[in-house]
Simulated assay, not measured.
Amino acid sequence: MSPRQKAIAEAIIASILWSTGGLLIKLVDWNPVAISGARSFFASLALLLYIKKPKFTKSKTQTIGTIAYAISLISFVVATKWTTSANAILLQFTSPIFVAIIGATVLKEKVYWFDITSIIVVFLGMGLFFIDGMGGGSTAGNLVAILAGFTVAISTLSFKLEKDGSAIEITLFGNILVFLISIPFMLQSMPDLRSIIILVIMGVFQLGVPYIFYVNSMKELSALEAILITVIEPLLNPVWAFIFIQENPGIYAVIGGIIVICAIVFRNIVSMKKFYSSHE
């Protein structure tokens, strides 16, 4: 394959592996914070083998990014346990909207019409997740999923702003931090053998390896291509849960999810077109 074809394949593989998170988390019978810690422990080993000599710059952006990424990892697992897989991943997928809001309010970046339009539409879509019990989901789980989306946005901005390090190192330190935070929860009880095997698979193949694939793919892909490919994750995540554990998201959650995905994709397509046209 050409370098570009290889990059597309890597991004697709990363998205598919990420999409298994909801199902695998549901299959582990353990405290959600403990699950997050064990998953991050094995992910840290995979990332450390790849990075070999990580650089801790102690910069503000690396520190904030590490903390935000750690919170997002824990929040996503907790949300997946407390609500449906569909709700957890689709509400976390709102992170680009939070990036736009933070960019406008904190970083004083210019706000365009497509930012405002997509923000309004996404929040309308999010509202549908809180109607009629959401197919077995809970309000608390939905709120934690939104927190995950918000902290993903902060860590994403940190990836962009970090000058002395790299995004993949922030993910390594974030996973290590999650493991350290979760130790008291992990010591309360032990999972069964099946759960331990799933946790190893989650840490290595659902979290660690996909980030390596994704970071490598970014060398050849445009930002728009990467965005469109990674939509595979929120689309497949509830599909695996439906097929293997018969988890049915509510009809309003499905409608809300479609609205959120369409709004995010629309915003990024228009944003990238504007970027390319201004640089021609």
Rank of each mutant, 00 (worst) to 15 (best):
I101S: 10
Y211A: 00
T151L: 02
M126G: 15
D132Y: 07
L177M: 15
E225D: 13
A167E: 15
L147V: 15
M202T: 08
S118E: 02
F179K: 09
T156R: 02
F123E: 00
E233K: 02
I196S: 06
M190I: 06
S166N: 14
G137D: 09
L207C: 07
S155P: 11
N175E: 04
F159E: 02
D192E: 15
L157R: 09
D115R: 00
L228F: 13
S182Q: 10
F205D: 06
F129N: 09
L180R: 13
L187I: 15
I101N: 06
T151R: 03
M134A: 15
L172A: 04
G208E: 07
P234V: 01
I168Y: 07
I227R: 09
I201M: 13
A226M: 09
F130N: 09
E169D: 09
I229A: 00
I198G: 03
G135T: 03
L187K: 12
I146A: 06
V209F: 12
L143G: 04
Y211T: 01
L199V: 10
G165Q: 01
S182G: 15
T139N: 11
D192F: 06
S118C: 11
Y214E: 03
D164C: 00
G127V: 10
I119S: 04
A167I: 00
L107Q: 12
D115N: 12
M186P: 14
Y112P: 05
A153F: 12
V144F: 11
K108F: 08
I154D: 02
K160S: 11
L193D: 08
V215N: 09
R194I: 02
T151Q: 05
S189V: 05
I116G: 03
A104T: 10
Y214A: 02
I131W: 11
I196H: 04
D192C: 01
V204L: 11
P184I: 05
S222P: 06
I181W: 15
V152K: 03
V144D: 06
L221H: 12
G141K: 02
S217A: 15
V215F: 10
I198R: 05
Q188G: 05
I181P: 13
M202A: 10
G141L: 03
A226F: 11
A153I: 03
G141S: 03
G103E: 07
K219R: 15
Y214G: 02
I197N: 04
D132V: 00
I227K: 07
I229E: 01
S217I: 01
I170L: 08
I201H: 08
F130A: 06
L235A: 14
G125I: 00
M218G: 01
F185P: 06
